[in-house]
Amino acid sequence: MKKLVIVLLAIVAIAASPVKQGFEVGDTAIDFKLKNVDGKTVSLADFKDAKGYIVIFDCNTCPYSKAYNQRIIDLNTKYAAKGIPVVTINANDPAASSGDSFEEMVRIAKQKNYKFPYLVDETQAVAKAYGATNTPHVFVLSKDLKVTYIGAIDDNSRKADAVTKRYVEDAADALLQGKPAPTSKTKAIGCGIKWKSA
């Protein structure tokens, strides 16, 4: 009887808790199928030998995305070779932010010579599933899609050379060593993702 009460209480507690939006550190994230700037569809599962992933919700227009553009390119250069590729996703609604159109994504990826996918999340379903809110917003995942880090790239948006804490690099290094990220969650000021109006 006591057991039943506890089970019932647990069910009530679960039902009463607000619907959880997005992943937390320790959750298992989902894979996705999204269109890349080259027109081909990309999934995380396409990276057969990956030891993990650096998934970054990014965009064309946000000044923070611009400030971090070179740092994102550098992250991929450093970690793709070690088995942790960068995968960037733009979820901004082009109706709300015209500079975030697919054509502009193609142009920027070409101009900056992206060696990593820059995917369009047209329905915004992936950004919502992940719980992405800002750009750039990083999710470091293990090989089996366990979330090991959520947040900012580092602690100084304005000046790359004044950074003292490299959150994403530390999380990626830890992943390679089979250790948990030293800092697993951070927040940063940033541009809100431009959601489609309901």
Binding site: T133, N134, D155, T186, K187, A188, I189, G190, G192, I193
Partner: peptide, 15 residues
């Protein structure tokens, strides 16, 4: 990251 939570814990930092 050192102060966003001190303004509001539920704030992501997005503007």
């Amino acid at each position: 990251n050192a102060w966003i939570d001190k303004i509001d814990k539920s704030w992501s930092g997005a503007l």
